[in-house]
Amino acid sequence: MVKVYIEKDNKNIELEFNGKIIDLAKSLNVNIETVICVLNESVVNENTNIKNSDNIQFLSVISGG
């Protein structure tokens, strides 16, 4: 299982996934333009492949004030 955290919605999800982060983002309706991807504590490119047992966080780039 891949563990996913979407910061904007403060949501944790676990799902079966093998493939690129960008495709995972699309399937979860996360606009890649608005996040950075942190894989197992390291910031990575959205074209990085992930596998089951990985931990991915989509951190929102939007801040304010």
């Binding site: 929102s60 801040s63 304010g64």
Partner: peptide, 8 residues
């Protein structure tokens, strides 16, 4: 503190 202002 990574978050947006609640009024945004």
């Amino acid at each position: 503190f990574y978050t947006e202002c609640p009024y945004v």
